[in-house]
C-alpha cells in the first residue's frame, strides 16, 4: 500500500498496470494526454506494449486485435476522440471483447474546448455506436476512484466479455489528490474463446457477423440477457446525508464534488437535502432512485450537460415526484453557491 499525491489521469495508468493491463493503444488529446504520457514512460520499462496510434479509429481497433488475442487492453481519449472510437466500440460489443476505455470529457459539440463537461453521457451510457449494445460505465469523482474504478473496469470487462467505460471529466483528470494504491496485481486469465495463435485456440473465431437473421437475433438477445445480469449484479452508488433527506440531488463526476459542498451549505441552513451519486451509470441505480421516490419530496439532477442523465432519473422516479434539472454548458463550472441556490429553489418548490 502506498499513498501518493497524484493526478487523476495518472492514477488511471497505475491502476491499469495493477489490474494486469498489458497493452495500451491511444491517440493524444487534451485533457486526457497525461494518460498517454505516463503510459509512454512506464509501459516500456515493464515490458508492456504501447503504441501511439495514427488515429482514434486505429487505436480502438488495435485494442480489438489485442483483446482478441486474450490481453487486457486500455485506451483513453476525450469527447471528440470518443466519437471517433464509436465504430470500434460497437464491434467490440458485438464480438464480445473486453476492453477498458477512458473518456476524460471535455466541452462540445464539435471541437468545443478543453474544459470539463458531461455532454458525453448519452454517447457513452446509451450505446453510442450502431446496434443494440450498451457498455458498463463507471464514473469516478476523485483520483482514488480513477485508480480503483479502472481496476474494477478490467475485472468487469473480463467477467462479462464487454467493453467497459470509465467516464470522467477534465477536472477529475487534472486534479491531484492522495491515492492509496493496492500492492497486489490482478491478472487476466487465459480465455477459452480468445485467439492466441496456438493449437488450443486455433478453432476460435472472433466475429460480430451473423448473416442469418435468426442467428443474429439470437446473438442480440444474448447480449440483452447479459445486460440484464449486469443490471442485477453490478449497480454501484454512493450516498451523502440521504437517511433523513427530504430532497435528493443526483450528480456524478466533478459535479458531485461541488454538490457535496453545496449540501453542507444547505444543511447548515437547516434544509434536509442529500445526494445520490451513481458510480455506475450503466447499470443505473434506478431501484434505489425508485425507493427514494417513495419517501422524498423531489429530485434534481445537476450536470455539466443539457440534461442527459436526468432522463434516467425521470425514468426511475416514474412521475412519483417532481424531477428538476440544472446544468451548465461549454466548460462553465457552476459555483457551489449557485448550485446551493438552485437546489434550495427546487426544494422549496417541491
Amino acid at each position: 500500500m502506498k499513498r501518493e499525491f497524484i493526478k487523476g489521469n495518472e492514477a488511471i495508468v497505475k491502476g491499469a498496470l495493477l489490474a494486469g493491463c498489458t497493452h495500451y493503444f491511444g491517440y493524444p488529446i487534451t485533457p486526457s494526454s497525461e494518460i498517454i504520457h505516463l503510459v509512454a514512460k512506464l509501459f516500456p520499462k515493464v515490458n508492456a506494449c504501447y503504441i501511439q496510434a495514427e488515429s482514434e479509429v486505429a487505436a480502438i481497433n488495435m485494442c480489438y486485435g489485442a483483446s482478441s488475442a486474450g490481453r487486457r487492453v486500455l485506451t483513453a481519449s476525450s469527447s471528440p476522440g470518443i466519437s471517433l472510437k464509436q465504430e470500434g466500440v460497437s464491434y467490440l460489443a458485438g464480438s464480445e471483447l473486453p476492453c477498458v476505455i477512458i473518456d476524460v470529457q471535455r466541452a462540445g459539440p464539435g471541437l468545443g474546448n478543453i474544459w470539463p463537461e458531461q455532454g458525453d453521457y448519452n454517447q457513452v451510457v446509451k450505446g453510442g455506436g450502431h446496434g443494440n449494445y450498451k457498455c458498463p460505465v463507471l464514473a469516478p469523482n476523485s483520483p482514488q476512484e480513477m485508480c480503483d474504478l479502472t481496476i474494477d473496469a478490467f475485472e468487469l470487462a473480463d467477467k462479462y466479455r464487454t467493453p467497459v467505460y470509465v467516464l470522467t471529466d477534465a477536472y477529475v483528470g487534472q486534479v491531484m489528490e492522495p491515492v492509496t494504491f493496492p500492492s497486489t496485481i490482478q491478472k487476466g486469465e487465459r480465455k477459452d474463446w480468445a485467439v492466441y495463435g496456438d493449437k488450443n485456440s486455433s478453432n476460435n473465431l472472433i466475429s460480430s457477423i451473423k448473416m442469418n437473421t435468426v442467428e443474429m437475433e439470437k446473438m442480440n438477445i444474448l447480449l440483452q440477457e447479459k445486460y440484464e445480469v449486469i443490471e442485477k449484479n453490478e449497480v454501484k452508488y454512493a450516498e451523502y446525508l440521504v437517511d433523513d433527506a427530504e430532497y435528493i440531488v443526483v450528480s456524478y463526476g466533478i459535479t458531485s464534488r461541488i454538490v457535496y459542498s453545496a449540501i453542507d451549505t444547505l444543511r447548515a441552513k437547516g434544509l434536509k437535502v442529500g445526494m445520490l451519486r451513481p458510480i455506475t451509470l450503466f447499470p443505473y441505480p434506478k431501484k434505489r432512485v425508485a425507493e427514494l421516490a417513495k419517501r422524498v419530496k423531489g429530485f434534481c439532477s445537476i450536470e455539466l450537460s443539457n440534461g442527459q442523465m436526468v432522463d434516467d432519473v425521470r425514468l426511475a422516479v416514474n412521475g412519483k415526484v417532481p424531477v428538476e434539472f440544472y446544468g451548465r454548458l461549454g466548460g462553465a463550472i457552476p459555483e457551489q453557491d449557485e448550485i446551493a441556490n438552485k437546489i434550495e429553489e427546487f426544494y422549496l418548490k417541491a
Binding site: 503504441i51 479509429v57 488495435m62 480489438y64 486485435g65 482478441s68 485467439v195 472472433i206 466475429s207
Partner: peptide, 17 residues
C-alpha cells in the same frame, strides 16, 4: 484462429494481435 475486422481496420486489428 480467425478474427473478423471492421471495414478497413484489419491492419490495426492485426497490429494488436
Amino acid at each position: 484462429g480467425n478474427i473478423q475486422a471492421a471495414h478497413g481496420r484489419a491492419p490495426a486489428v492485426a497490429t494488436g494481435t
